[in-house]
Amino acid sequence: MEQNQTNLLQGTLDLLILKAIGDGEFHGLGVARRVELITRETFTVRPGSLFPALHRMEEAGWLTSFWGESENRRRAKFYRRTKAGERQLGIETEQWTTISRAIGHALKAI
C-alpha cells in the first residue's frame, strides 16, 4: 500500500470522495477504504487530506453528516451525499472526462 502511493491530482479528491460515498453512509475511515477499493488501491487517502476535504465539502453543502455507531460499536461521524453533492459529482465527472480525453489525444498525437 505504501509503495503504490500516487500523488492525488489536485481537485480529484472531491470527485473520488463523492463517487466513493455513492448513495451510502460512511465514516471517515469508511470513506478512505472505499476510495482505495474503487481505485483498486492506486490511491490512499491520508487523514491529513481526508478530514479537511470532508469538512470543506460538508460546508459547501455537498455532504451532510450525522453521529452514528460504527461496525465496531464505536461512536463515529457518518457522511452522506446531498442532492447538491450529486450535482457536483456530475459536474466534476464531466470535467474530468474532458481533461482525460484531451490528455489522451495529446499523448497519442506525438
Binding site: 465514516h27 471517515g28 475511515l29 465496531n72 461512536r75 463515529a76 461521524k77
Partner: peptide, 17 residues
C-alpha cells in the same frame, strides 16, 4: 470537541483494524 471525537474515533477504528 466534535472534531476531537471524530479524529480519535478514526484512529480507534484504524487500531481496531
Amino acid at each position: 470537541s466534535d472534531l476531537e471525537a471524530e479524529i480519535s474515533s478514526y484512529v480507534d477504528a484504524v487500531t481496531d483494524e
